[in-house]
Design a protein around this nucleic acid. Structure first.
Lengths: 223, 223
DNA sequence: GGGCGCTTTGACCGAGCGGTCAACCCGGTG
DNA sequence: CACCGGGTTGACCGCTCGGTCAAAGCGCCC
C-alpha cells in the first residue's frame, strides 16, 4: 500500500511524512520499547494524524519491524567492517570490540530492544538472520586459535564477547546507582573499553598457552 | 486489607487461595513477562475468580513485585552461599559461577524478567538493593587480586561475570536456532559451564601475571 | 437460629489500545 | 472548469485491560 515514495523534489530539510513517522517511531521505541509505545504516541511525536501511521505503514508491528531492521543492518555493518582481514587476531578483535562498544554507546537502548525481542518467538527468525553472519565472522576469525568443538569453540566466545559488551549497557541504568557516577560518561565508557580489551588479551594469552598442548602430541608445557 | 492469613489448619496439599494465585502469577510472569500477562490470565491459571486477585493482592503491580522479590531473594541466597570464605579464590569463583549457572538454569526466564525491569526506572531502587550485596561480595572476594580502581576493578568483573552467565540464558532461545541443538540441554549447559570456568581461570592467570608489576615499583616484566 | 466477618462471585466501568472509514483537501491534468 | 488520485483528517469501532462493587456464600460463636 502506501509506499512512502516522495514524488516531489525531496528538498533537504523538508522530511516527508513517512520519514517523520519513522523517525518518531525509532525514537520512542528505543526509549520505551514496543509495548509501552502507542501509535498515538508516535503520531503525536511526529506531529501527524494517527491514521497517517496506518496509511504509510500498515501496522504498528510493521513499523517496529522496520525500525528493528535498520538497527540490525547498522549493527552488522559496523561490526563487519571491523572484522576486516588485516592485522593480527588480537588487533582484529580489538577493532571489533571497539566497533561494538561504539555502536552500543551510540544506540543505547538497542540492547534492551533486542533483548525484548528475544521474548517473542515470532521474531526469532529475523534475529537469527541478523546474528548468523556475526557468529560466522567470529568463528572464522578465531578458527586458528580455538578448537571447533567443546567449551572453547568460537560460538562460546561469541556469547561471551557479546555478553561482555552488551551487558554493560543493559545494566547501565542500574550501574549508575550502584557505583557512583554515570556509566555512560566518556570516562566510564573508556574504562569499560579498557576492561574488555584486557579481557580479550587475557583470553588470547590463555588460548595461546593451551593450543600447543593440543595441536602437537601432548608434551610438557613449553614456556 | 486481605492479608492472606490462613486461619484454618493449613494442611499440606491444600494450598490457600493466595498461594494459588501467587504460584500462577510466578509461572505466567516468568513465561511471558509482566505486560503480556493479564490479571484474568493469572486468575484462570489459578482456577480462581479475577476479583480475588485484587482482594488478596492489591494490584497487578504488587503481585509482580512480590514474585520479583522472591526471585531476588532466591538469587542472592544462592550466590551468597557460594561466596563462603573457604578455599582459594579460584575455587570460590568457580563455586559462585556454578551456583549462578544452576540458578539460571532452574529459573530460565529470570534473566529476561530482570532485564525487562531495567527498562522501568521506577523499579531501579529495588534491583539496586538486590544487586548491591552481590557486587560487594565479588569486590571483597577479588580485593586481593585486583586493583580498587580502573579497568581491572572488581566492579568491571562484576558486569563481566554476570554477563558471561546471564547472556547465555537470555540468548538461549536464539542460540538453539543458530547452533544446532538445544542450548538448555544438559550437555550444552555443561559445555557453557566449562567455558565460563575456563574464562575464570584465564582471567585469574592474567591477573596473577600483572599484579607483581603493579604492587612493586614498576620494573621490567618478570617472566 | 441469627448475626458477624472473611471470602468469593459475576457483572460492571472507564480508559486506552490498534485499526478502519468516509469524507475532505489540494495540486496536476485535460 | 471538472475530474482525478494520493495525502490527510477526525470520528468511530471492537476489544482488552486493570480495577471496582454490591451482593451472595459460608464457617463460627453466642
Amino acid at each position: 500500500m502506501g509506499k512512502a515514495k516522495a514524488t516531489r523534489g525531496d528538498r533537504a530539510g523538508a522530511a516527508t511524512t513517512a520519514e517523520k513517522i519513522r523517525a518518531a517511531a525509532e525514537e520512542l521505541f528505543c526509549l520505551r520499547g514496543f509495548e509501552a509505545v502507542s501509535v498515538a504516541d508516535v503520531a503525536e511525536r511526529a506531529g501527524v494524524n494517527k491514521a497517517l501511521v496506518f496509511y504509510h505503514f500498515e501496522s504498528k508491528a510493521h513499523l517496529f519491524d522496520l525500525v528493528l531492521a535498520r538497527y540490525y543492518d547498522a549493527h552488522t555493518a559496523a561490526l563487519a567492517g571491523a572484522f576486516a582481514d588485516e592485522g593480527a587476531l588480537a588487533e582484529r578483535l580489538h577493532r571489533v570490540v571497539d566497533a561494538y562498544l561504539d555502536f552500543m554507546a551510540d544506540n543505547r537502548r538497542y540492547a534492551a530492544l533486542v533483548q525484548q525481542q528475544l521474548t517473542e518467538p515470532g521474531t526469532h527468525a529475523r534475529i537469527r538472520r541478523h546474528l548468523e553472519p556475526l557468529l560466522r565472522f567470529l568463528e572464522q576469525a578465531l578458527a586458528g586459535a580455538t578448537p571447533p568443538k567443546g567449551p572453547l569453540a568460537g560460538r562460546q566466545f561469541f556469547v561471551t564477547f557479546s555478553g561482555m559488551v552488551t551487558h554493560y549497557f543493559t545494566y547501565a541504568p542500574l550501574l549508575g546507582a550502584l557505583w557512583g557516577g554515570d556509566p555512560m560518561s566518556r570516562a566510564a565508557l573508556d574504562e569499560r573499553r579498557a576492561h574488555v580489551h584486557w579481557l580479550v588479551d587475557a583470553i588470547l594469552a590463555r588460548l595461546a598457552d593451551e593450543r600447543p598442548a593440543k595441536a602437537r602430541p601432548a608434551r610438557a608445557r613449553t614456556r
